[in-house]
Design a protein around this nucleic acid. Sequence first.
DNA 1: TCTATTCTAGAATAAGAATTCAAAAAAGAG
DNA 2: CTCTTTTTTGAATTCTTATTCTAGAATAGA
Lengths: 195, 195
Amino acid sequence: MSRPRSYNESSVLKGAMHAFRRDGYQRASIRDLEDATGLKAGSIYNSFGDKAGLFDAAFEHYNQVVLGGRIERFAPATAGLAGLRDLFTSLMHEPNGESHGCLITNSAVELGRNEDAYRHVHAGMDMLFKVFAERLAAARHDGSLRADIDPLLAAMKLLALYQGLLVLVRAGQDKPALERLVAAEFHELEAHYDI
Amino acid sequence: MSRPRSYNESSVLKGAMHAFRRDGYQRASIRDLEDATGLKAGSIYNSFGDKAGLFDAAFEHYNQVVLGGRIERFAPATAGLAGLRDLFTSLMHEPNGESHGCLITNSAVELGRNEDAYRHVHAGMDMLFKVFAERLAAARHDGSLRADIDPLLAAMKLLALYQGLLVLVRAGQDKPALERLVAAEFHELEAHYDI
DNA sequence: TCTATTCTAGAATAAGAATTCAAAAAAGAG
DNA sequence: CTCTTTTTTGAATTCTTATTCTAGAATAGA
């Protein structure tokens, strides 16, 4: 019937996401997005409506694929507190020295309460908070979490720490120092039985 | 000899700073900056060279006056750990429900390693880190800090938490929850003598 | 008071960005 | 094979933004 789209949606979204993470919503021009996605401006408008529409789709992709995948990979339910720690440590290990940062953090700061982005920012933060809270609650049950720690309060603290680390990485702070910080924080969370 | 400037430099910088905090460097247009400063574009260019020059001056002003003043007010050397806690708590109490955020956090995220902003971002973070480290070291000496805590490591952690809180405030997270988090964190830092 | 100089205002300019448009191309349905 | 529908493309357009220019106003010292 009609001519089918010739591009691969997932690779287009990946490219757009990359550009938005690196440059922010405002600075990523349609020109940049053409390069990043391999599509021409016309096709972008035809497929996504406008720049905001592409951002929307790219953010959705980020939350589901990148963030979701990261959680699956580093912090599945079976990995306990150590998994959470690995998730945090991975923030300091972005490939080839680049620090694109997190679309959630970057958008929260750049766009504030902007309605469209707000939805995704909240969804992403919720996803993180829930994983933190679940892992901490489980750790409390199996005794690996210090008994005097409130899982929900600690989950919120981890969320703040997570966002803060991303800011510091983006600002070029010394990564080894940040890793020591993460190690120390998780050491504090763990139950340690004195002999 | 020559006509002197008719504006008040400090109030101009305050206005510009406000606009940059609210909207970010990119989104704050010269038009917006005219309104925010009360100057006309011509005067802005005459006095500060260009938009980047005004941003530079406004950032300098932020670090010296706003951040410096905040530290003086909430966390002078005499106030100890409680002063630091108050400084953190004040982040959740911006006047009239607005959350302009911190120019340091916002610029770190928006501008990344951009050379001009980088200088100020680093200066601001350094200023915070040094205050945290000094207060923690002093608290260690007077015994109000838990003895097993490394002041430098804890200072870095506080810096991350500080930046993270600002991201969460900007994203509209529940402020009371964030305040509880701060209270809990400082409770953890303090030495508590069991009777 | 006059003059040199700098400030201010607001229009003009120029560059860059987002978005739209019109024509060419592709692919399946009949 | 042709027709229809939608995508693709690249140019055209419209908007916005940063920056410059020009004329007029203000000031302090000669």
